[in-house]
Design a protein around this nucleic acid. Structure first.
Length: 420
RNA sequence: GUGGGUGUAGCUCAGUUGGUUAGAGCGCUAGGUUGUGGCCCUAGAGGCCGUGGGUUCGAUUCCCACCAUUCACCCCA
């Protein structure tokens, strides 16, 4: 137990962290191009924030949060999603008083949910996310969605499906809910138990029930898209037009509703096949009432979350190899104590020039040192033994070509630099 | 929270129809040159056969429980 990471958590080992860094660099560049600035918010927030934003009837809040009392008796929760903290910060720091829109991203922020782990699901995972405040125009919806797609394209991922839908606004959704509940009540006897509950608490959620019998019933239900109010309908049309003009393929999926209460109008998911049952790599939507609900001025918002671990699963399933950095440019091989000291000095000199250099720390034989140098992918090896110490001239071996040169100690830096 | 699968070396896995010292490949360490890597050869280190209980003369093997892990449901990134 002592030497076991908690259930649903994973170490990112040095052999893997290069992939993370590569992805993160790509994402940062794309966000910059789109004009989004990075925001970092705390790993934990007041529990109240999530109750109010995510919604206290949602599964996330009801059974998945890591909540505890701190020593000052405050109820604290490890963030179960990325948006709430950013909204809180937006309000707290009065970012709404600057020129709008406010466009922000967060990267590899840890997110916690107490769930049973499975393929593509962890108790701690990491998200890249976008939040854009202040614009009610579908233009920003299209921009946010295209950021997600840019990231996926840039990484060479193929064959993902963009699903979009509109779930209306406080003006039109109540009417729809009424119509939906009316329809469901007629067919009530055929519904599963949880759908019967959902009819009362959150009827929209029946739309994405996985039960065969429910799906059959729900497929005949009235569609939100058919009863959107004028405003929502125009918004959705505006989004579609912009996606089309950017040649972004999408599918309208009236059954995606999302499990967080704050969504309005646009919702979307980007779905991968081939990484197990949890195929949603990216999900998000518009949240026009959220800022106000948290105590800020009425401010529209739009955003998404993307799971880094799921992204890595997709890359793996599509056999996309990410470029690896060369780990060692120069290995300094030394024989004996005096040479070891000189080698340490020479290694330090290389490092000061920004060259990736290593030396022996194991007191190994020359043969073993060369084996090791080969194993870590050293491009060149500088060899220093008694002869070299005496003459002040080192042997520089090119590992790939198996060629050797004699180079005076004083000229080593120049020689290596010239060879690069 | 519910259901199924799996737990033998660092990793991937054999194996014991219940019987003395539990195996392979890879990896690791050393050697095969007195100062030269990759290939090859040799040797070595490394296992409470997940944990606890039961059956038995005897359990890593059979039974039960627990734990871990994995896949799926619920839900989500």
């Amino acid at each position: 137990m002592l030497t076991k990471a908690p259930k649903g958590t994973k170490d990112v080992l040095p052999s893997q962290s290069g992939k993370w860094q590569y992805i993160e660099e790509k994402i940062r560049r794309i966000c910059e191009v789109f004009g989004y600035g990075e925001i970092r918010t705390p790993v934990f927030e007041h529990t109240e924030l999530f109750l109010r934003s995510v919604g206290d009837t949602t599964d996330i809040v009801q059974k998945e949060m890591y909540t505890f009392l701190d020593k000052g008796e405050r109820s604290i929760t490890l963030k179960p999603e990325g948006t709430a903290g950013v909204v809180r910060s937006f309000v707290e720091n009065s970012l709404y008083s600057a020129a709008q829109p406010t466009k922000m991203y967060y990267l590899s922020t840890p997110v916690f949910r107490y769930e049973r782990p499975q393929a593509g699901r962890l108790r701690e995972h990491h998200q890249f996310g976008i939040e854009a405040f202040g614009s009610a125009e579908p233009s920003i919806d299209a921009e946010v969605i295209s950021i997600a797609l840019s990231v996926l394209n840039e990484l060479g991922i193929k064959g993902l499906a963009l699903n979009i839908n509109s779930i209306g606004c406080p003006k039109c959704r109540p009417d729809y809910n009424k119509a939906l509940v009316g329809y469901l009540e007629e067919k009530q006897s055929g519904l599963c138990k949880s759908c019967k509950d959902r009819m009362k608490t959150n009827p929209l959620r029946t739309l994405d029930c996985k039960e065969e019998k429910c799906r059959a019933i729900v497929s005949g239900a009235p569609k939100m898209l058919e009863v959107l109010c004028e405003d929502c309908s125009m918004h959705f049309e505006g989004l579609k037009k912009r996606l089309e003009s950017a040649e972004i393929n999408y599918e309208i999926n009236p059954f995606i509703v999302r499990g967080l209460d704050y969504y309005t109008k646009t919702v979307f998911e980007i779905i991968a096949t081939g990484i197990g049952a949890q195929g949603t790599v990216c999900g998000g939507g518009r949240y026009d009432g959220l800022v106000e609900q948290i105590g800020g001025p009425p401010t529209p918002g739009m955003g998404f979350g993307m799971g880094i671990e799921r992204l890595l699963l997709v890359l793996e399933s599509q056999n996309i190899a990410l470029p690896e950095k060369s780990s060692c440019e120069i290995y300094v091989c030394t024989l004996g104590n005096a040479a070891s000291i000189k080698g340490f000095e020479i290694t330090a000199g290389f490092r000061q020039m920004g060259i990736k250099a290593e030396c022996d720390h194991m007191g190994r034989s020359m043969k073993a040192q060369l084996k090791y140098a080969n194993k870590i992918g050293a491009e060149k090896v500088v060899i220093i033994g008694d002869d070299e110490l005496e003459s002040g001239v080192a042997v520089v071996r090119d590992m790939e070509k198996s060629e050797e040169n004699k180079v005076p100690f004083a000229g080593l830096n120049e020689f290596i630099k010239a060879g690069k």
